[in-house]
């Protein structure tokens, strides 16, 4: 069995545990490469079905091409899609034009997530985060509890071993289920290639530039690249020493910005 087979089987196991153990799971989807792998794995885990709602937290700063992909993929996969916008914050004028990126990320992503979770009473959120993305994510559990205030108690995480996880939640609490934790960026690309998973076109080079990681358009930078195929991308990643999220401004706004964002509920 190859390493990709191992990762795939482990992720499917985790998805099935989440579906069994929680009353109302939901899966987050950003239309990015990782969350498309997540949907693909759900289809495999549940024999062609996605038996829970898919949530897209729409910051209103989405690339138009990504929204086009969203419309297409929703129909293609037959998704029960919930699109959520923090209208209240937008009405207050929160936006990249006026506010620093950490605050905007918190308001339009974390707070929006809190709103959609409350509105739909989700007790589990399945996310596509990976340990190799960021050093705080490296410390995550597959099933990671969040309290009613959305906080991550990284100082006292529950034990997790032998395929046994935290599956009980108290009132208002939820568990982040993270089936892709063990995948690396290269694993994701190799799997997308092997399985022929549909992807947004923005990941591939046009006029010598492409996006390595996709977020809000005002704070996401493309990179110089001639990679037009997944093979090209994998070759590029083998030699790069730049981190994947280097083009995501909110991570680098201040020292330990990511830790602060994540402790308050960011993915």
């Amino acid at each position: 069995m190859s390493h990709l087979d191992e990762l795939e089987s482990q992720s499917i196991y985790l998805l099935r545990e989440a579906y069994h153990n929680f009353e109302k799971p939901g899966m987050l989807w950003s239309m990015g490469k990782d969350s498309n792998v997540l949907i693909w794995l759900a289809k495999k885990a549940f024999c062609g079905h996605v038996p829970f709602p898919i949530v897209h937290v729409d910051t209103t700063y989405e690339f138009p091409e990504m929204l086009e992909f969203r419309t297409w993929a929703r129909e293609h996969y037959g998704l029960d899609l919930i699109v959520w916008i923090n209208e209240e914050a937008r009405a207050r004028g929160i936006g990249y034009e006026t506010t620093d990126p950490v605050t905007v990320t918190h308001e339009l992503k974390s707070v929006a997530l809190q709103q959609v979770l409350g509105a739909h009473k989700f007790d589990a959120l399945i996310t596509g985060i990976r340990r190799d993305e960021d050093s705080t994510r490296a410390k995550e559990r597959y099933f990671s509890p969040r309290n009613a205030e959305f906080e991550w108690d990284y100082k006292d995480q529950p034990p997790e071993f032998w395929n046994h996880f935290t599956t009980d939640v108290g009132p208002g609490e939820h568990v982040r289920v993270q089936p892709l934790l063990d995948w690396t960026e290269i694993d994701i690309w190799r799997y997308l290639e092997r399985e022929n998973v549909p992807l947004p076109g923005m990941y591939f080079s046009r006029n010598g530039r492409r996006y390595r990681s996709l977020g809000c358009w005002p704070i996401t930078k493309d990179i110089a690249s001639n990679a037009t195929t997944i093979n090209d991308i994998v070759e590029e990643l083998k030699v790069t020493r730049t981190s994947e999220r280097a083009g995501r401004a909110q991570d680098h706004h201040e020292r330990n910005a990511m830790q602060k964002l994540r402790a308050k509920g960011f993915m």
Binding site: E65, M66, E68, F69, W72, A73, E75, H76, E193, N196, P198, L199, P200, G201, M202, Y203, F204, T228, T229, I230, N231
Partner: peptide
Amino acid sequence: SARPPAAVANDIR
């Protein structure tokens, strides 16, 4: 799904 828009990359491989 039979005719994806340009935003969907699926034939590059």
